[in-house]
């Protein structure tokens, strides 16, 4: 049995992520925790998040859990989801500009206004719904998931990593945006696997079995 800790820094619903992990890994211990010691002792870490960047960063700092992220993000399988991905970059343009954790050098930008596709049709912001994720390189987390599978998204800001080598999946929305990133034992996605039906659950299952090597 392994222990999977979901970092609870007070931003949003962790129930769905937790229940989805319990479903795909019934023999594992899934803990929602804000206790640094518990997080430090876990075998795998999930960093979710919801809401505005400024609130998330404030919550991470005030709770001391920013340190827990730094302590674990390079040492064991680590999954960032949505805001839990965005806080890993260096800086977000949301809320007038917020410094983030700088685990993945790069920035978080808002979709253009107005946003259009290649044919000039208008695209709505937030990007809300099911979009295809193109697997730009092989990764253990993609095991059993077809290329260009649709996952569920709900976001107005997107990540622009400095080093394109970290990009593991992209989605076309206005232009190609990085929607999955990985580096060593870290994998992070803009979409919500816990809300993406069977393929999302498969990704989470892969995470519970991933060795942490890219």
């Amino acid at each position: 049995m392994q222990r999977i800790a979901i970092i609870d820094y007070g931003m949003g619903n962790l129930q769905s992520v937790s229940k989805a992990l319990e479903k795909v890994a019934p023999d594992d211990e899934v803990l929602v925790s804000s206790d640094a010691a518990v997080i430090q002792s876990a075998d795998r870490i999930v960093c979710p998040g919801q809401g505005a960047a400024a609130d998330c960063m404030r919550a991470l700092h005030e709770s001391g859990l920013a340190q827990s992220v730094s302590d674990t993000v390079h040492t064991r399988p680590f999954l960032g989801i949505c805001m839990g991905l965005q806080v890993l970059l260096s800086h977000s343009d949301e809320n007038g500009g917020v410094d983030c954790l700088n685990v993945i050098p790069g920035k978080v930008e808002r979709f253009a206004d107005p946003l259009t596709d290649d044919s000039g049709s208008r695209l709505k912001v937030p990007h809300m719904g099911w979009s295809e994720v193109s697997q730009t390189r092989e990764h253990a987390m993609w095991k059993g998931i077809s290329d260009n599978t649709r996952f569920y998204f709900a976001h107005s800001f997107y990540c622009v990593p400095e080093d394109s080598a970290v990009i593991t999946g992209t989605t076309s929305y206005g232009h190609n945006i990085a929607t999955a990133m990985s580096y060593g034992n870290l994998f992070a996605c803009q979409f919500h696997p816990e809300k993406s039906a069977a393929n999302g659950l498969k990704l989470l299952e892969n995470f519970t079995q991933w060795s942490g090597e890219s």
Partner: peptide, 11 residues
């Protein structure tokens, strides 16, 4: 909501 969200994994 708790019951549904813990067993159904779509929005």
């Amino acid at each position: 909501v708790e019951e549904v969200a813990s067993q159904v994994f779509i929005p």
